[in-house]
Amino acid sequence: MDSTHVTALQQKHQGLETMLKDEMNRPSPDAARIQALKKQKLRIKEEIAHH
């Protein structure tokens, strides 16, 4: 696996983490959005782990 691809995945994972924290800190967080962000993070984490 190309290390630039892994780096890009790690950056995307971090971006999703930031979005997740921002959403959770809102006065009325959107539970569906939080769940979707968590699923995206998990898929990226699994892809990174497989390489």
Rank of each mutant, 00 (worst) to 15 (best):
M1K: 08
M1D: 12
M1S: 06
M1I: 03
D2M: 07
D2S: 10
D2K: 11
S3T: 07
S3V: 10
H5V: 14
H5T: 13
H5I: 09
V6L: 15
V6Q: 14
V6P: 03
T7R: 09
T7I: 08
A8M: 12
L9R: 08
L9M: 13
L9S: 10
Q10R: 13
Q11I: 02
Q11H: 09
Q11K: 13
K12V: 00
K12E: 10
K12Y: 05
K12W: 01
H13W: 09
Q14Y: 14
Q14T: 10
Q14P: 03
G15K: 13
G15P: 06
L16T: 01
L16W: 05
L16I: 09
E17G: 13
E17C: 11
T18V: 12
T18Q: 12
T18P: 04
M19F: 02
L20F: 05
K21W: 04
K21A: 10
D22S: 06
D22G: 00
D22V: 01
D22C: 00
E23Y: 01
E23S: 02
E23K: 01
M24L: 10
M24E: 04
M24P: 01
N25H: 11
R26I: 05
P27V: 07
S28Y: 09
P29T: 06
P29G: 03
P29D: 03
P29H: 00
D30E: 06
D30P: 00
A31T: 07
A32G: 04
A32N: 09
R33F: 00
I34A: 07
I34W: 05
I34T: 10
Q35T: 12
Q35R: 15
Q35I: 04
Q35E: 15
A36Q: 12
A36R: 12
L37R: 10
L37V: 11
K38A: 15
K38R: 15
K38F: 08
K39F: 00
K39V: 01
K39G: 03
Q40T: 02
Q40M: 06
K41R: 15
K41I: 13
L42P: 02
L42S: 13
L42D: 14
L42W: 08
L42V: 00
R43V: 02
R43G: 10
I44H: 05
I44C: 05
K45M: 10
K45D: 14
K45I: 09
E46C: 06
E46L: 14
E46P: 00
E46R: 15
E46A: 14
E47H: 13
E47P: 07
E47Y: 11
I48G: 09
I48A: 10
I48P: 08
I48T: 11
A49V: 01
A49L: 12
H50A: 13
H50I: 02
H51G: 08
H51K: 15
H51V: 01
